[in-house]
Structure formats: C-alpha cells, structure tokens
Simulated assay, not measured.
Amino acid sequence: MYIERDITIEELIIELNNGIRSFRSIDVVNSGDLSNWDLQGVTFDECFLTGVDFTKCNLKNARLIATNLKTCIFQDADLTDAEIRYCAVESVDWHGAVINGTVFEENSSYGQMLSRVDLEQMVI
C-alpha cells in the first residue's frame, strides 16, 4: 500500500464538510471522532484510518477497500449495503452495527481471514 498523503482528523473533517466522499491512499495520522456523521456512500480505498470512531455513523453504501481499520469503532453504525474488502480489522468494535446487505470479504485480523459469518458474530 502506498500512502500519497498524511492528514489529520481535523483536515479529514474539513474535506468531508466540503462534500468530498472519495478518499484514496490517505493516512489519518491521529485517531478521532466521526460519531453520528452521515457518511453515506463514502469510499476509503487503500487508507489508514486507525482508531477512528464511527459510532452511530450512517455508512450505508460505503466502500472500505484495502484499508487499515485497526482499533476503529463502528458501534451502532449503519453499514447497510456497505462493501468491506481486503481490510485489516484487528481490535475493531462492531457491536450493534447494522450489516444488512453488507459485503464482508477477504478481510483479516491477526493473520486470520474473516468471513461474513465472523462479522455477524462480532456485531452481537
């Protein structure tokens, strides 16, 4: 994975407020809070989002592709029809997330490949 630019959570929030919904090869260099944000349709492709809090976010139709999601929080987030593929998901909190129609494929945690069934067990 090649990172094109480092940004802070504050810079990410500015870009989101400006309507940008597609991010490629960014590294959010500090963890931060995006809880309760409407991020419907957002795309993070080959990004580092370590430690970002997405609690209660609207992530319907979001695309998280080949992204480092380690220690992120998706508690009670709506991931309906989202696509999560090729991501690193160590220590991610999925409790209460809505995963209706969510594609969850080829993701890994601590060297183990995870399936949709694994995700279903983690949201409980």
Rank of each mutant, 00 (worst) to 15 (best):
I3E: 10
E4H: 08
R5Q: 02
R5K: 07
D6N: 15
I7D: 07
I7R: 05
T8G: 06
E10G: 03
E15A: 15
L16D: 02
L16V: 05
N17P: 11
N18W: 09
N18G: 10
I20N: 10
R21G: 02
S22R: 14
F23L: 14
F23P: 06
F23Q: 09
F23M: 11
S25N: 10
I26A: 07
D27E: 09
V28M: 07
V28K: 06
V29P: 08
N30R: 13
N30V: 13
D33M: 08
D33Y: 08
L34N: 04
L34W: 09
N36K: 15
W37A: 14
W37G: 10
D38G: 12
Q40R: 15
G41T: 13
G41F: 12
V42E: 01
V42Y: 02
T43L: 15
T43V: 15
T43K: 15
T43R: 14
F44H: 05
E46Q: 15
C47I: 00
F48K: 14
F48L: 12
L49N: 06
L49S: 01
T50I: 13
V52M: 10
F54Q: 13
T55I: 09
T55W: 07
T55G: 03
K56A: 04
K56S: 02
K56F: 01
C57T: 01
C57R: 01
N58V: 12
K60Q: 12
K60E: 11
N61M: 07
N61H: 08
N61E: 12
A62I: 06
A62G: 05
I65P: 05
A66F: 09
A66C: 07
A66V: 06
A66E: 10
T67Q: 09
N68C: 11
N68D: 14
L69D: 02
L69E: 04
K70C: 12
K70A: 11
K70M: 13
T71H: 00
T71N: 04
C72L: 07
I73D: 05
I73N: 08
I73A: 05
F74T: 05
Q75V: 13
A77S: 03
L79P: 00
T80C: 05
T80K: 12
T80Y: 04
D81L: 15
D81P: 07
A82E: 01
E83Q: 14
I84K: 10
I84T: 07
I84F: 10
C87N: 03
A88F: 00
A88K: 04
V89N: 05
E90A: 10
V92I: 09
D93L: 14
W94H: 13
W94Q: 11
G96M: 01
G96P: 03
I99Q: 00
N100Y: 13
V103W: 05
V103N: 03
V103I: 05
S108G: 06
S108D: 03
S109C: 00
S109F: 00
Y110A: 09
M113R: 11
M113W: 07
M113H: 05
L114Q: 05
L114V: 03
S115F: 02
S115W: 00
S115M: 02
R116Y: 00
V117G: 00
D118G: 10
D118R: 08
L119R: 11
E120T: 13
M122L: 15
V123M: 10
I124K: 14
I124S: 13
